[in-house]
Amino acid sequence: MIVGILWNLMISAGFMSCVVIAAWIWFHFPDRTADDVVDFLLPVDLEKAETLLDANAETHLRCDLSRKDFRKLQRKRIHLYVLFVHRMAHNAAVLIDWANREAEGGDEQAAELARELQQIAVEVRVYSLLTLIKLRLWLLIRLDSWQILPAPSLYEVREVGGILGLESYDRLKTAASFLFLEMGRRNFDELLHNL
C-alpha cells in the first residue's frame, strides 16, 4: 500500500518536474549581463544584521528588559532578520544568474572570478534558505511565546548547515566586486551600496 503510494508519488513528481522545468524555461530571466545586476539587488544592512546576531547584545537585552518585553522584542528581531536573509537569498540568486553567464564567457580571468562568485553565492543561498526555514518555523510555532522554554536566540542562526552566514555574504560582496571590476564597470559604488 505505502510502496504503491510512494511509487505513484514519484511518477507524479517526475511529470510535475517536466511541467515546472518547461514553465521555468518559458518565464525565466533572459541572459543576465553586468548591466542587469545593480538595479535588481536589494540592499542588506550588514552592520544591523551583525547586531541582531550578536550574543552579547542579546544577553544585554535579555537582562535589561522584562521577560514579556524581551519575547515581544525578540519576535520583532526575528522578523527583521528574516527580511535581511530574504534579501541575501535574492541577491545571491541574482549574482548566481550573472556568474553563470560570465563563467561561460571566453575571458579566462573573468570566468575564473565568475566560478568563484558562483561557489560563494551558492553557499549564501544554502545558508539563506536553511535559515529562512528555521526562522519561519520559530515564527510559525511561536517559539518566542512558550513560557516554559527560553526565548529563541538569534545567535543560533549565525551558523546554519556548517555555513557562517554573514561571513559568507561578506565574501560574496568581495567576489562580486572583483568580477564587476574585471568587467570594467563604472557604477561600482552602486553595486556595493545595493548588496
Binding site: M10, A13, G14, S17, V20, I21, W24, A92, A93, I96, D97, N100, A121, V122, R125, V126, L129
Partner: peptide, 13 residues
C-alpha cells in the same frame, strides 16, 4: 530529475 529541478529552482543553476 526531481532533485535537480528542485535545486535548480532553489539555487539558480
Amino acid at each position: 530529475f526531481v532533485l535537480l529541478v528542485t535545486l535548480v529552482l532553489l539555487f539558480g543553476l
